[in-house]
Simulated assay, not measured.
Amino acid sequence: MAKSKDTELEASTPDAVMSASLGTILIVEDDPRMQKVLRRIFTEERYTVAVAGDGQTALDLFRSERPLAVVLDLILPQFSGRELCQMFKSMSSETPVIVLSAITEVVDKVLLLELGADDYVTKPFSPRELTARVQAAIRRQKKTTSLETYRFADCEIDFKKMTARRGGNPVVLTAHEFKLLKFFTEHSERVMTREVLLNEVWGYNFYPTTRTVDNQILKLRQKLEPDPADPKHLLTIYGAGYKFVP
């Protein structure tokens, strides 16, 4: 691809950094000075950087480079940032889009989030905050993808298809048991109080009884633990709550 003042795929990154690249970040920004700043920020974090200065180039690079995430300005030639955000999400809904703009009105932020943007950072910005926001969005996307199928011990759980197997044999879980188990796998090794589980999994604002949690975990143990009376994965932490250990 020929380079112009409006587009550049990072080619000057040292070989040592490129060999350890964490993936590609697509920068959509028409200001050459800001392009250089953003390229440097993400190159130093060991990402390969693709830069587009207009909407059509951004779409072409999005298709060809399949970036881990997009950092998107709102005011651009050809297409607006809002239009591009919708286009990116229609092509790949799981790719995080982080809007980077000088527009600070709350209504604009809300609109972008409604159009599918994963986060919104206002100019002027802290490089540390921007990279943290982008990396957090990438982690959330990877976690969601990886958790479609989850394996521990002799259990295999497909959260997307809502199927479970233990030792190769089908196990019937209710929809709510899948929901509780997914929450545990997303927070493995962390102690969860009954109140947190009720609020996050059941969505109760006023808790009828914490025995609700105990009974649900007992049923999961009976279905997934080799010895429900001596669990190895769904552990009781006395005086605190429960912890999932893969």
Rank of each mutant, 00 (worst) to 15 (best):
G203T: 01
T174I: 05
E186Q: 09
R151Q: 12
T144W: 11
F183Q: 00
L218D: 09
V134M: 06
K219H: 12
D227Q: 05
Y120D: 03
E177L: 08
T163V: 14
R190H: 02
L113M: 15
R128K: 13
E189N: 08
K123S: 10
E195N: 08
N205A: 05
D230M: 11
E156F: 11
A132L: 15
T122H: 06
P124N: 07
V213D: 05
K143Q: 13
R194G: 08
V121R: 00
L173S: 03
S188M: 06
G167F: 14
A153V: 03
V134T: 06
E189P: 00
P127L: 07
V121S: 01
H233R: 07
N169D: 10
R140Q: 07
V110C: 10
I138D: 00
K143D: 10
D214H: 12
T174D: 06
I138N: 02
L181C: 04
L234V: 10
F183Y: 11
L220K: 01
K123D: 09
C155M: 12
R166F: 10
T174L: 08
F184S: 00
T209R: 09
Y150M: 14
F178H: 02
E129H: 03
K161H: 11
F206P: 00
N169E: 11
Q141R: 13
V201Q: 00
L234P: 02
R133L: 06
K143C: 10
I138K: 04
T209S: 14
A175T: 10
I157K: 03
E129I: 09
D227L: 06
T209D: 09
L180T: 01
D119N: 09
Q141Y: 10
E177P: 03
Q141A: 14
A117R: 03
A132H: 13
V172M: 12
T145S: 14
G168S: 10
T185Y: 06
T163Q: 08
K179V: 01
F183P: 01
L234F: 15
L115T: 08
T174M: 07
V110M: 13
E225S: 01
L224H: 03
Y150V: 15
E156G: 07
C155W: 06
T209L: 09
D118Q: 11
R190N: 01
K179N: 07
A117H: 03
R128M: 09
E189I: 03
A229N: 08
Q216R: 12
I138R: 03
P231E: 06
P170A: 14
V134D: 01
E195M: 06
E148V: 15
L112S: 10
L111I: 15
R151N: 10
Q216Y: 14
R211E: 14
Y204L: 05
E189D: 07
M192P: 00
Q135G: 11
V171S: 08
P124G: 09
R133N: 03
L112P: 04
Y120W: 05
D214F: 14
D214V: 15
K219F: 15
R133Y: 07
F184I: 00
F152Y: 11
V196F: 01
K142F: 13
K232Q: 13
H176P: 00
R166T: 10
R221F: 06
R128F: 11
A175S: 11
